[in-house]
Amino acid sequence: MSILEIIGGILIVIGSLFLFLGALGIYRMPDVFNRLQAGTKATTLGAMSLILGVGFLMPGWILKILIIIIFIAYSNPISSHALARAMHLRKRFMYFKNEEIDAYKEIDENNKQVK
């Protein structure tokens, strides 16, 4: 068993752990924003380290794996941003229903003033 295989195995275990935690978070969290947080953060790290672990086990695939990692790092934040913004525009607030706490609104208004 070479050192590369050991590193790859450890990375795969870490990745699957994070993916499991992400799934658990989606199941357990109370509202959309919390679920998005659990889902995107955990799956970004989880999927990346899992695929990187596969890259350590199969050194020939490293180029494709780098492309996949770039794609995940690129598409996951954008899609979660769009989902969260859509939910915010639909007036879905946090589960405790405190409409005074709305940090994004201030950012949005600042943006409008800049434009």
């Binding site: 690129y74 598409s75 954008i78 941003h81 769009a82 913004r85 525009l89």
Partner: peptide
């Protein structure tokens, strides 16, 4: 369109 997309989504879609 109810709300236009943000600049993040626009540039992301253009690159993708």
């Amino acid at each position: 369109v109810l709300f236009p997309s943000t600049r993040i989504v626009m540039s992301g879609a253009k690159l993708l």
